[in-house]
């Protein structure tokens, strides 16, 4: 009888110890992911991010719907998005192409002081309408080509 009592007490003690044991703390949360630094769009040399051709220009010089085909009566805009800072000569050279031949349509240049991402626009129109055919505009920044966009008039 004494043995049973001692065994019961031991069992009870073990149970109490087991119940009073604290649960292991949850593992610490992983450290927050370090976001990749945003690309510096200001303290870099001026470069062209994108050129959009369109026939309408919204507020803040935002391009309308991108287009590659225009109507003869359209004013054609090349909206040039640049990043970077500093002085920049941004030029748009518009040309017409027919087979192997080409003709200059217009060439316009802006001398700018840029201080970060900037929108600039170049536009051309022709009072008697654009001849149907294939055209091209090349954007250069400080004399270096920053891309060529082809478009047509139908």
């Amino acid at each position: 009888m004494k043995f049973i009592t001692q065994f019961s007490l031991a069992l009870l003690a073990l149970t109490l110890v087991a119940c009073s044991k604290k649960e292991a703390p949850p593992p610490p949360p992983p450290p927050p992911a370090v976001a990749a630094p945003a690309p510096d769009l200001v303290n870099v040399p001026v470069s062209v991010k994108q050129v959009v051709l369109t026939n309408s220009l919204g507020a803040d010089m935002k391009a309308g719907a991108p287009m590659t085909t225009f109507a003869p009566t359209d004013t054609i805009y090349a909206v040039v998005e640049t990043i970077g800072s500093g002085n920049a000569s941004v030029k748009a050279m518009w040309t017409y192409h027919k087979g192997e031949k080409s003709a200059q349509v217009s060439e316009t240049m802006q001398e700018l002081v840029l201080a970060g991402p900037t929108s600039s626009e170049f536009h051309i129109s022709k009072p008697d309408g654009w001849p149907a055919g294939d055209y091209q505009v090349e954007i250069t920044v400080n004399g270096a080509s920053a891309g060529i966009q082809n478009f047509s008039v139908k």
Partner: peptide, 16 residues
């Protein structure tokens, strides 16, 4: 052909 240009740049020194 009529052409032109403009910019939202901090400063536009000239347009040619």
């Amino acid at each position: 052909v009529v052409s032109g240009a403009s910019s939202k740049a901090a400063e536009t020194k000239a347009t040619y």
